[in-house]
Amino acid sequence: MAAPRRVITKRRATITALPLYHSGALLKKYTGEKDFKKYYGELRGSTIFLYMDETQDTYTEKLDLHMLKSMEMDSPYVKTPTIFTLSLINEEVQLKMECPDKGEEWRGFIMTVANKEIPSKMQLLPGQIERLKQVLYDEKERLFPQTPPDLSKKSFIPCSSFLGNTQETDSPAANPPCFFDVSRQEAERMLTENPEYGNIIIRPSTSSYAVTLRQDNLSGPVFKNYRVLPIDRVLVIELDPPVTVHSLRDVLDHFLKETKYRLRPYVIPQVYDNKIEVPPMLDRSTKPVPHARVAPMIHTQTACADMPPTTPPPDPPCQTSDNNGEYIKVDVPSKPSVCTRPAKVDEELRTILKARRENLYKAGSHD
Rank of each mutant, 00 (worst) to 15 (best):
T82D: 01
T16H: 08
I8C: 10
Q146D: 10
P336Q: 01
E104G: 15
F255D: 01
K224W: 03
C159S: 10
I48C: 03
L95G: 05
K62A: 10
K224H: 02
R249A: 09
G198Y: 06
K116P: 00
R233F: 03
R284W: 09
V211N: 11
H66N: 11
V294T: 09
P296S: 13
Y40K: 01
P265N: 07
P119H: 08
N194K: 15
D250G: 02
T311V: 12
G32K: 07
G364K: 15
F255K: 02
G24P: 07
L349Q: 03
N175P: 08
A3K: 13
Q185G: 02
S155V: 08
L125D: 02
V278Y: 02
Y40Q: 00
I298N: 04
P76N: 11
T82A: 10
Y21E: 04
R341G: 05
G103T: 09
Y266H: 03
S337D: 14
P148K: 08
L282R: 10
P158I: 06
M297Q: 10
P280D: 05
I200V: 14
V294A: 06
T14C: 06
I231G: 01
L63D: 01
D138H: 02
S365L: 03
N115P: 00
E117T: 11
L218H: 05
S365M: 02
K257Q: 08
L136W: 05
K257R: 13
D35A: 14
L43P: 00
V222L: 14
Y51T: 11
A3M: 15
D331Y: 07
S208P: 02
P314E: 10
T169Y: 01
F255Q: 00
L263D: 05
D53K: 07
E104Y: 05
K62D: 07
A3H: 13
L65G: 07
Q185F: 06
P204D: 06
R262I: 03
Y209M: 13
Y209R: 08
H366P: 00
P309Q: 06
S183C: 04
V211I: 15
F49Y: 15
G325R: 04
R142D: 06
M71N: 02
E348F: 10
I352C: 02
Y77F: 12
F49N: 13
S23A: 07
T310V: 15
K38W: 00
K34M: 05
N217E: 15
A295Q: 13
R142T: 12
V7Q: 14
S207H: 09
E105L: 15
E104H: 11
K257H: 07
L88A: 01
V243T: 14
R356C: 01
N217D: 12
E347G: 01
H246K: 07
L143V: 07
D240Q: 13
P204T: 09
D315P: 08
K10C: 11
L65T: 06
K335A: 14
D181R: 03
E168W: 09
G364S: 12
Q319D: 06
